[in-house]
Simulated assay, not measured.
Amino acid sequence: MPEQVFILSIREDIRLNLQNKSLCAIKDSHLNQIINTWIQDIKEGYRDSTLTLQLPLLIEAGIDQINEQGNQENPTIFNPDLSDIEPVFGMLPPLNFS
């Protein structure tokens, strides 16, 4: 009865150990898939299990939870002084098309 061994506290210990060793985020669905594979293999008498998963890195999994504490103020907006700017001959195309 291997399913009786994998109680909630043991599942969380397994998740933490696997995350620490792999540096990958292991979600509930991944953990369930791992444990269900183990249970099935144990019932069939296997001592080893092979399982391939695409796991996100721990650093990528928590990127949405980052709270940036940098400067949040908008810069002061000012109107530039354009009084000294004049067009230079040859810089603008002629406006008469005849």
Results as ranks from 00 to 15, higher is better:
residue 60 E to Y: 13
residue 12 E to T: 14
residue 30 H to Y: 05
residue 75 P to L: 06
residue 42 I to S: 09
residue 76 T to L: 13
residue 51 L to C: 06
residue 36 N to V: 03
residue 67 N to Y: 07
residue 70 G to V: 06
residue 7 I to V: 14
residue 14 I to T: 03
residue 44 E to N: 12
residue 96 N to W: 01
residue 19 Q to W: 01
residue 84 D to E: 10
residue 37 T to E: 08
residue 87 P to I: 07
residue 62 G to V: 13
residue 96 N to E: 09
residue 50 T to N: 15
residue 64 D to Q: 13
residue 15 R to I: 02
residue 96 N to Q: 09
residue 89 F to K: 14
residue 87 P to F: 12
residue 19 Q to H: 05
residue 97 F to A: 00
residue 74 N to I: 00
residue 53 L to V: 01
residue 53 L to F: 02
residue 71 N to V: 10
residue 82 L to F: 05
residue 27 K to W: 01
residue 94 P to D: 12
residue 4 Q to Y: 05
residue 40 Q to I: 13
residue 86 E to R: 13
residue 30 H to N: 05
residue 70 G to E: 04
residue 13 D to S: 13
residue 52 T to C: 03
residue 20 N to G: 08
residue 57 L to W: 07
residue 19 Q to F: 03
residue 1 M to W: 10
residue 47 R to T: 06
residue 45 G to L: 09
residue 86 E to I: 13
residue 95 L to R: 12
residue 21 K to N: 10
residue 38 W to D: 02
residue 93 P to I: 04
residue 6 F to E: 04
residue 94 P to S: 11
residue 13 D to Q: 12
residue 57 L to M: 11
residue 17 N to C: 12
residue 21 K to A: 11
residue 43 K to P: 00
residue 37 T to N: 11
residue 1 M to V: 11
residue 80 P to Y: 02
residue 20 N to Q: 12
residue 45 G to D: 06
residue 91 M to P: 04
residue 15 R to P: 02
residue 65 Q to K: 11
residue 92 L to Y: 07
residue 98 S to D: 11
residue 19 Q to K: 03
residue 47 R to Y: 01
residue 25 A to M: 09
residue 83 S to G: 02
residue 50 T to G: 03
residue 71 N to A: 09
residue 42 I to L: 15
residue 39 I to F: 01
residue 85 I to G: 00
residue 69 Q to C: 10
residue 83 S to Y: 04
residue 2 P to H: 06
residue 8 L to D: 15
residue 9 S to C: 06
residue 94 P to N: 10
residue 87 P to T: 05
residue 4 Q to D: 15
residue 37 T to D: 00
residue 45 G to E: 05
residue 14 I to A: 03
residue 53 L to M: 15
residue 69 Q to D: 03
residue 95 L to C: 07
residue 27 K to G: 15
residue 7 I to W: 12
residue 89 F to A: 15
residue 93 P to E: 10
residue 38 W to G: 07
residue 41 D to M: 02
residue 75 P to A: 05
residue 30 H to W: 02
residue 6 F to H: 07
residue 73 E to V: 05
residue 27 K to S: 14
residue 78 F to W: 05
residue 5 V to P: 02
residue 71 N to I: 11
residue 9 S to F: 10
residue 59 I to L: 12
residue 18 L to K: 00
residue 38 W to V: 14
residue 45 G to V: 02
residue 90 G to Y: 01
residue 38 W to I: 15
residue 85 I to N: 05
residue 71 N to F: 11
residue 3 E to G: 00
residue 52 T to P: 01
residue 26 I to L: 13
residue 28 D to V: 09
residue 22 S to W: 00
residue 55 L to H: 02
residue 13 D to P: 00
residue 82 L to M: 08
residue 76 T to P: 05
residue 32 N to Y: 05
residue 12 E to L: 14
residue 19 Q to R: 11
residue 61 A to R: 11
residue 20 N to C: 01
residue 23 L to E: 08
residue 52 T to Y: 00
residue 63 I to G: 01
residue 25 A to R: 13
residue 14 I to P: 00
residue 23 L to Q: 13
residue 29 S to W: 02
residue 84 D to W: 09
residue 31 L to K: 03
residue 48 D to A: 05
residue 59 I to A: 11
residue 72 Q to S: 12
residue 25 A to F: 15
residue 97 F to N: 02
residue 58 L to N: 04
